[in-house]
């Protein structure tokens, strides 16, 4: 009887302690008015659970009048719960050389279950012609 009560208490506490799923409902026009320049991408997946929670839907690029590239990656959380991750963007010049910047950082982001998130980045210089986007699970000690 006591064991049953403890098991029930544990179940109740687990359910209430962050295991609750949260899923996002969305609505958007059935036909998009925007003209997207979608680029083909190459994906390297080393963390399968992250790639499920942060699934890349697509990548599009636009260039402005002064030649700065703007990129957007759309990701979807296919799981049922909130997922935190970091996202960082590396830029490369026309020779494929990495462009080092003092503003380089791993942006912390979070995405609710079922949510679609648009992550944008702007090239720091018109010399930036290429890029790489990296996603990482939270690192805590």
């Amino acid at each position: 009887m006591i064991a049953k009560s403890i098991a029930l208490l544990l179940l109740v506490s687990l359910t209430g302690a962050g295991c609750r799923s949260t899923r996002v409902n969305t609505v958007e026009p059935s036909e998009s008015a925007a003209q997207r320049e979608v680029v083909e991408d190459r994906r390297i997946v080393k963390d399968r659970s992250l790639s499920k929670a942060v699934r890349v839907i697509g990548l599009n690029v636009a260039a402005g009048q002064e030649g700065f590239l703007k990129i957007q990656v759309e990701v979807e959380n296919t799981s049922r719960s909130l997922k935190s991750f970091t996202c960082s963007v590396e830029w490369f010049d026309e020779n494929g050389i990495f462009i080092d910047l003092p503003t380089a950082n791993a942006r912390p982001r979070s995405i609710e279950g079922g949510e679609i998130l648009s992550i944008t980045a702007t090239a720091p210089t018109p010399r930036a012609k290429d890029f790489r986007i990296k996603f990482l699970e939270p690192v805590t000690k």
Binding site: E66, F68, K70, P102, T103, N105, T120, T122, P124
Partner: peptide
């Protein structure tokens, strides 16, 4: 320090997007 880097990154991106890149 990462907060300053994030803020600076977002601010420069905004300045480029909304003021420099449109000419």
């Amino acid at each position: 320090i990462q907060d300053f880097a994030q803020a600076a990154d977002a601010m420069t991106a905004s300045l480029i997007d909304n003021f420099i890149n449109p000419g």
